[in-house]
Structure formats: structure tokens, C-alpha cells
Write a protein that binds this DNA or RNA. Structure first.
Length: 510
RNA sequence: GAUCCACUAGCUCAGUAGGUAGAGCACCUGACUUUUAAUCAGGGGGUCCGGAGUUCGAAUCUCCGGUGGAUCACCA
């Protein structure tokens, strides 16, 4: 029914391709045969629809005193088998851990016990039994009956070494989660971190909102966007690179404290700390400024650290980091002076700044750069990597801060900070520019940058400018990369270790 | 996008000077009524990432390609 526009990439045209014949190896064949046998007996495990669980493995381990001798029903995945003939031991894994099962031929009868022994590692079973402690002292469930709830047709990775191969871990994360408890722990902590942020913000009077992901003009950050297409409207849309311009319209609308935790999309390369889609917290608070944002940022980070690690003195990749507020505050000018000996307050012109960059042979220097661009370049080149302990770098040059209020006494600088920890940026905040006339000038300056070849420069967003013309109160705003915060608080080296399904190339080129 | 490293059984890994491919776990058969990486005996299982080349002969050497990891560049 396509009338115009591009073919829908989600529904590719029919091709001659046959679905690839599924490769059946020996192990799968044996398990399929077992399944056929069960189905033949009228015991198709996939017909099971429910199993009333009375407790989890960890409940039994934690409340053994109360549960000893009591009947329980548990369900989960068989992770190991230790058959001893007419008696056998298995480990059952559920959401919170593992519990040993002890099964005797006497309890099931010879036929049922034989079926029990034919179960495979990986099968999902529901168990009824009683809680007891074995002769060796291990808290266990003595099986009195079981139901096979799903058959595993593929074997799990090896029980001792587990799953190591990073590619398989990322591509088949479920296997990683089954086999590696630490991985599961990381993602539980990720959930806890995001929950804690919500709790803190909700308790401070913020409301959580949702703004569009499909943007007509990708704004609020300097980045290349992903493009998509709306067929009915026959127009290109962009996946958002930041929610900023919408959130500030809500401040105009009278929501005085708003936040959004959501996915942003930037069309950049992948690295140990970059994924094309990532999660950002952005918040805006009326009647405060970037100094207010510093205090809020410190609180949020310290609070999540306490929640996840129980302390604000943490270790990240072997480095001791103290997240106890207040964090160090250093202006960008001070930072550059400290690490290079250059005082940018003495650099008056674009030409003088360019001279400095050329003298240092800075590769990223471009002749179109203005004084503030060069200052930012010096900071990135010489300072960032040295900032191990949390540090607010404040007073950014106006050239790189198109949405930020000027400092009242310094029109070349803005009321903006970024938070650095271990050389990485964790947060970006400012006193939001609410002067609509100034805002239009800033967009004009960005347009100049774009014409000079910077395809990441901000685009004029007319809807946003109109909103400012109705009046926005003085407002502080802050954005924080959640994935990086999770990395920090879970001691993860790579962003892929805190994303359940990191972006991967397809296995075969299509 | 550039450089370096990796890819061998379902998993974790060995692999001789270039001479028909190995172990452990898992799986199958048998033994075993309190084990816990259970044990013991026997057995089956491979597109050595893909393609081309060198060679009498390639998992191994060369080239091209794929995927992953690390570093660099852009960014958060």
C-alpha cells in the first residue's frame, strides 16, 4: 500500500531466501527426542501454564529455622545434577539464588524417578518437597513431587568456568545472566540506582515527565542524530539527542520542577564508554541556578552511592574515589592555569588564543575557532584526564554553551559546570538561558559554526524560541549520564557491562 | 574510521617443525540410597570464523573478508 516515501525497512521486500535450516547438533537431537517421548506420554512440558511457588531459594536459606520440616513449592532452572543411583542431588536456580534438591527413588516411585533422572541441566522445573538439612549440612529441599515446566533444548555453558566469551555474553545476555551471578547483580544495582534517583527527585518535589523521542529538529546538544522517516507525513524525523528544549518548555508552562530519565540517541562510534543509545537524566528547577544544581548533583550521586555501596568512599577500577559532598569546585580558567600555566584571563583575542594552540601543536585546533573554543580545547587536552576526584568545572566559555546564561560580570563566560570523575564527564548543568533575544543570537552563532563545517553545532529551534518569548523563570538545569554512573558504582570497565543489550554489529553482513 | 590481539566440540581451553583433531565439563550406556566441580567404567560428538593462495600435504604459513576485544579519533 506504499504510495510514496521509502520502502518500510521493517518489512523488507520478499526475497528468495529460505529460512536458514536450523543446525541440530547431537545434544539438541537427544533433548528433542526426550521431548517427543514426553509429548507421546501426554506430558508435554510446554502445556504447563502455572506453578504456585511458595518461596524462593533465598527464603529457604534465610529462614531455615522457621521452614525446617515445612512443605514448600519452588521453581527454577536445574543447574547441576549429581546422581547417586537411587538418590540424587540437583541445584535449582531461581531469581534470587540456588537451593539444593535431594530426590530419593522412594519418594517418587521407580518410573517417575527414572524420568527425573532423564531431566537435563537447563530444564525448568517446579518442585514440591520439604525443607531439611543434609548430613553434610547443606540446606535442601527433599523432593516429593515435580513438574517439568519447560524443556531446555540447548545445553547450558559449562558449570565450572561458566560463560566467558564476551561476544556471546553480549549477544545472548540471557546466558550471561543464567551463568554469571555478578552480571545479574550489576543489573539489579542499575535498577536500584535509577529507583533511588527517582525517589530522591520525587521527594524533592520534582515530577517525572515524558517528552518526544521523535524530533523534527534535533536540539539541546551538539551531536549527530539518527534519521528516520514518517511515511504518512512523508517527512524525516530525528531520534532525540537530548530532551532539553522540551523540558524547558514545561518550565515555561508552569511545571517548576521536572525530570526525565530516558534514552537518547547519538550517531557516533562505539567505545568502552559510548553506546549509540544511552540513558540520560535531565532535570530542570525554576528559581535556582547552576550553584543550586551543584548541590543537587552532589546529593544525587552521594545518595545513590550510599544506596548501592553503603558508602561514599568507593573504588573504581583500582582507584579510590571519595564521593562525599561537597565536591571540589574549580573554574575552567583556574583548571587550565593549574595544569598548563596559561591564564586565559590574559588572552584577549581569538588570534592570541589561536597562537597558543599553534604553539602547543594541538591537533584538533581549527583556524575558525574562537577564543572560547580554544579555551575549551585546552581544558579537554590538558585538564580532564587529571580530574580523578569529583570536581565541578565551572564557568564555561560562551562559544561552547549556546543554551546557557552569561555570567553577569563576564559576558565571555557562562554559568555552567560539568562534573568530572576519573577524567570522565558525569554531569552537565547550567543556569538556563531565558533571554529570548540572547537565545536567538546564540543560535545565530551556532549557525555560523555549522556553516564553517561543524555539523554538530546546534540548530535554531523556532518553537523553543517562541516559548522563551512567553517568559521562562530563571531556571537551573542538569543532565547526568546514567550508564556512566552505573559503571562508576558497579566498578564496571565498559559501558557494555551496564547495558543489557549493547549495540552490536550483525553477525553476517546483510 | 585506524592499529594491535583473538576466533578449534554445546561451554572452558590445549594443539607438536606444516603430516588424518585433543582434554575437562556437558551428552549417551552401565554401576552407585546423603552428594556438592560427586565418583568409577565405556561411548558418541568438529565447516579448526569464511574465502583464496603456497605446498605432495594447512587449525598451523601468506593474502582478502567477517565478528569480538583493547587502544586512538568524535562524543556523554
Amino acid at each position: 500500500m506504499e504510495v510514496k516515501g521509502r520502502p518500510d525497512p521493517v518489512c523488507p521486500a520478499e526475497t528468495d531466501e529460505q529460512p536458514a535450516e536450523q543446525e541440530i547438533n547431537e545434544q539438541m537431537r537427544i533433548r528433542l527426542t526426550k521431548l517427543e517421548g514426553l509429548v507421546g506420554q501426554g506430558e508435554d512440558p510446554f502445556e504447563q501454564v502455572e506453578f504456585p511457588v511458595t518461596c524462593y531459594s533465598c527464603d529457604i536459606l534465610n529462614d531455615f529455622a522457621a521452614l525446617e520440616g515445612q512443605p514448600v513449592a519452588v521453581a527454577g532452572r536445574l543447574m547441576s545434577k549429581r546422581g547417586m543411583g537411587k538418590v540424587s542431588f540437583c541445584d535449582l536456580q531461581d531469581q534470587c539464588g540456588r537451593i539444593q534438591l535431594f530426590t530419593k527413588i522412594d519418594a517418587l516411585g521407580a518410573d517417575r524417578y527414572a524420568e527425573w533422572q532423564r531431566l537435563d541441566i537447563g530444564d525448568l522445573v517446579g518442585i514440591k518437597g520439604t525443607v531439611f538439612r543434609t548430613q553434610r549440612g547443606e540446606i535442601s529441599v527433599k523432593t516429593s513431587g515435580y513438574v517439568l515446566l519447560a524443556k531446555a533444548l540447548r545445553p547450558l555453558p559449562e558449570k565450572y568456568h561458566g560463560l566467558r566469551d564476551t561476544e556471546t555474553r553480549y549477544r545472548q545476555r540471557y546466558l550471561d545472566l543464567i551463568m554469571n551471578p555478578d552480571v545479574k547483580d550489576t543489573f539489579e544495582k542499575r535498577s536500584l540506582i535509577i529507583r533511588t534517583l527517582r525517589q530522591e527527585l520525587d521527594a524533592s518535589g520534582f515530577i517525572e515527565v515524558e517528552t518526544p523521542i521523535l524530533h523534527q529538529i534535533p536540539g539541546g546538544a551538539a551531536a549527530r542524530p539518527f534519521v528516520t522517516h514518517h511515511n504518512a507525513l512523508d517527512m524525516d524525523l530525528f531520534l532525540r539527542i537530548a530532551p532539553e528544549l522540551y523540558l524547558k518548555q514545561l518550565i515555561v508552562g508552569g511545571f517548576e520542577r521536572v525530570y526525565e530519565i530516558g534514552r537518547q540517541f547519538r550517531n557516533e562510534g562505539l567505545s568502552i564508554k559510548h553506546n549509540p543509545e544511552f540513558t540520560l537524566l535531565e532535570l530542570y528547577q525554576a528559581y535556582t541556578d547552576y550553584k543550586g544544581m551543584m548541590i543537587l548533583t552532589e546529593q544525587l550521586i552521594a545518595r545513590t552511592a550510599l544506596e548501592v555501596q553503603g558508602t561514599t568512599q568507593i573504588e573504581y577500577q583500582g582507584k579510590e574515589i571519595d564521593l562525599t559532598p561537597p565536591f571540589r569546585r574549580l573554574s575552567m580558567t583556574e583548571a587550565i592555569l593549574q595544569y598548563t600555566g596559561i591564564d586565559f584571563d590574559q588572552v584577549q583575542t581569538d588570534e592570541a588564543a589561536g597562537e597558543l594552540a599553534r604553539a602547543r601543536e594541538l591537533e584538533d585546533y581549527r583556524p575558525v575557532m574562537k577564543r572560547g573554543d580554544v579555551m575549551n580545547l585546552f581544558f579537554e587536552t590538558y585538564c580532564e584526564k587529571n580530574l580523578l576526584q569529583p570536581t565541578f568545572i565551572h564557568d564555561y566559555p560562551i562559544e561552547v554553551s549556546p543554551l546557557t546564561k552569561k555570567k553577569p560580570d563576564r559576558p565571555d563566560l557562562t554559568e555552567r559546570f560539568e562534573l568530572f570523575i576519573d577524567g570522565r564527564e558525569y554531569a552537565n548543568a547550567y543556569s538556563e538561558l531565558n533571554d529570548p533575544l540572547d537565545q536567538r543570537e546564540r543560535f545565530a552563532a551556532q549557525l555560523e559554526k555549522r556553516l564553517a563545517g561543524d555539523d554538530e553545532a546546534n540548530l535554531l529551534d523556532e518553537d523553543f524560541c517562541v516559548a522563551l518569548e512567553y517568559g521562562m523563570p530563571p531556571t537551573g538545569g542538569m543532565g547526568m549520564g546514567i550508564d556512566r554512573l552505573v559503571m562508576l558504582l558497579t566498578d564496571s570497565a565498559s559501558i557494555r557491562d551496564v547495558l543489557l543489550f549493547p549495540t552490536m554489529k550483525p553477525l553476517r553482513p546483510s
